[in-house]
């Protein structure tokens, strides 16, 4: 048990329409659980997780805020964009509307976030659309897929977004979504995109300040090789 075991703290936010599975994704990430009937009043809208990126030889601490409750209050969501390093823009693969609305969420992101914010488009509830995805979307079918992988992928490419399909229920793609985004941010850090700690959402972990830690330093060995 020692002080710092990560190199960066990255602030993430999750946005998208109500009901697409934002809270579920966060719970899946931090607790490896899925709640079929999440209690919306529970309000656990923050979670964190350590993620290792082996090829960068780095450990990052991911701090993730679910912007729940603000779906109808977009302007407050904007306050989150400004301070974030990464954003999961979520839609529901079984809801065409949520995909359409993703465009306006993205417009908001573009307008308010740091230009270097890493944004990943996440098509959630992939478990409901497993098997062969129909090329044609079926608007009236509430249970089946309404947004094809190709269409979403194409749009993501046009907009310069990362993309992944995921399922908070099965866990498929969830960790990956966060990892892909982290990698992208670390790449930007490496390439010097954020000079002087410019992105408000990226923080280098500093040695613990003040004398609190005196005992610590004499007793324990450094845990993460410098």
């Amino acid at each position: 048990m020692s002080g710092i075991s990560w190199h960066y703290v990255l602030k993430f936010i999750i946005t998208g329409d109500a009901g697409v599975g934002k809270s579920s994704l966060l719970v899946r990430l931090t607790d490896q659980r899925f709640l079929a009937n999440p209690d919306p009043t529970l309000g656990v809208e923050f979670g964190s997780k350590l993620i290792t990126i082996p090829e960068e030889n780095k450990v990052v601490k991911l701090q993730c805020w679910d912007t729940a409750g603000t779906e109808s209050f977009r302007s407050i969501t904007r306050s989150y964009y400004r301070g974030a390093a990464g954003c999961l823009l979520v839609y529901d693969v079984t809801s065409r509307q949520s995909f359409v609305n993703a465009r306006s969420w993205l417009a908001d992101v573009r307008q308010h976030a740091d230009p270097h914010l890493t944004c990943i488009l996440v098509g959630n509830k992939a478990d409901l659309a497993s098997g062969d995805a129909p090329a044609v979307t079926l608007p009236s079918d509430t249970f089946g897929r309404q947004v094809s992988t190709e269409e979403a992928e194409l749009w993501a490419k046009e907009e310069g977004l990362l993309f992944v399909e995921a399922s908070a229920k099965s866990g498929q793609g969830v960790q990956e979504a966060f990892e892909v985004a982290c990698r992208d941010i670390l790449r930007k850090v490496r390439e010097g995109v954020f000079e002087d700690d410019r992105s408000p959402g990226v923080k280098l972990s500093k040695p613990l300040a003040n004398g609190v830690d005196l005992n610590q330093q004499s007793k324990s060995t450094q845990c993460c090789g410098t």
């Binding site: 309000g43 979670g47 805020w65 679910d66 609190v212």
Partner: peptide, 16 residues
Amino acid sequence: NASNQSYFLETQLPST
């Protein structure tokens, strides 16, 4: 505020 509690515990402030 459960979210804030979780966040707060992430920081160094609890030992402060």
